[in-house]
Simulated assay, not measured.
Amino acid sequence: MVPVEGRRGGRRDLLQQILRFAAVGVVGAAVDLSTYLLALHLGLAFYAARALSFICGTGTAYVLNRRWAFRVEGSARRAAGFVLLYGTTFLVIMGVNTVALAVLPHHWWTVTLAWALSQGFGTLCNFVMLRLVVFRT
């Protein structure tokens, strides 16, 4: 019997995949937050700024996750699955962000914390769905 760590798809592969996913997440989140804050600074409405930042961060994450974190070839089916997943996630993230902005006290850090809460929730959901559905190998 081959030990779990030696099998493809074992604990070691999962841990490496999680670490790569986290690194991609940091890059995607930096793109997302930077775009969001810049768009707000330039006067875009909250919803437009969040939509634009989500598209920029998601596009970055898709390319890096497909090529590096999950190491799979691109296909129309995978791209469609990714768009469906992230479209659904976008609605969830917008809901979490909206609720957070409504309930958090208004301080200089409120917008960033609301973004971080929504991003964290979306990231957890996305990893599970990307691994089990979109980038399943």
Rank of each mutant, 00 (worst) to 15 (best):
N65E: 02
T88E: 06
L85V: 10
A30P: 09
L19Y: 08
L19K: 12
G6K: 05
V83N: 05
F46A: 06
R131S: 05
L117K: 09
G120P: 04
V134S: 05
Y62C: 01
G87V: 08
N126V: 07
V99L: 12
G122K: 12
N65D: 13
L124Q: 08
V133F: 11
V27Y: 09
C125K: 09
W108K: 09
R77Q: 14
T89S: 11
T110V: 03
T89W: 00
F121L: 14
I55L: 12
G28Y: 00
V99M: 01
N126I: 03
G95V: 01
N65P: 00
F135R: 00
L15E: 04
T60H: 04
N65F: 01
L113R: 14
S34P: 02
T35C: 08
W108H: 11
V103K: 07
W115G: 01
L14G: 11
V63K: 01
Q17H: 05
A49G: 00
L64F: 06
V26M: 15
V103E: 07
V4P: 00
R7L: 13
L113A: 15
W68M: 10
V134K: 02
L42W: 10
F46Q: 03
D13S: 08
L132H: 08
F121M: 10
F21I: 06
A69I: 01
M1A: 15
D32K: 02
A22Q: 13
F127T: 09
M1P: 02
S53G: 11
F121H: 03
L33M: 10
V26I: 15
A51L: 13
A22I: 12
F121P: 02
A29T: 14
H107L: 13
L14I: 15
L19P: 06
A29V: 10
R66N: 03
G120A: 14
L130D: 12
L40E: 04
T137S: 15
G9A: 07
A100P: 00
M129C: 14
T88H: 04
L40G: 01
V111I: 10
L37N: 14
L104D: 04
L37T: 13
R78W: 00
L15V: 13
L64W: 00
L42Q: 08
G57P: 02
F135C: 06
G6Y: 08
L113N: 11
G87E: 09
F135W: 05
Y47K: 06
